[in-house]
Amino acid sequence: MAKIPLLKEVVKLIFSKPATIQYPREETPVEPDARGRQYADLSKCVGCSLCMIECPPKAIRMEKIPEGYEVPKRNARKIYPVVDYFKCIYCYRCVTVCPTKAYVVTNEYRLASDAPVNSRELSLSTLKKASQEPSQGEGVSKQ
């Protein structure tokens, strides 16, 4: 009755590779479209704040775009969303409600960090640095 080949299975597994992924020596395989870090592409963002309003854990804050960047004209208020990745639950509601589909999605799942992690740098990297002195008027220059 107990002669089920579990013993055989065990012996087989002793000589096989471990099933555990040897992270970080080995990459964890994730799907290319797994839900990882997302950030706003500021060349598309219009600063409407809808993602901030809809965000279930209130992980998104609207911030002023700092001086020195070329802000597209349609972002009249010159604000952009900053996602706090420690608060974010990666539901991608912001991605799906965005009227201009401005969010860029990645499958970056490695979040551990000592310092707070947010999307500020990623988002700002999508904007060109202004080549001339930042002017006071709306819309610094044309792309």
Binding site: V30, E31, A34, R35, Y90, C91, Y92
Partner: peptide
């Protein structure tokens, strides 16, 4: 994960359909 984009929390179902 293949279907929903996450191995545990699916966040897959939305009013009027699914999300992927």
């Amino acid at each position: 994960e293949i279907v929903t984009g996450n191995r545990v929390l699916a966040d897959y179902i939305m009013v009027g359909g699914v999300r992927r």
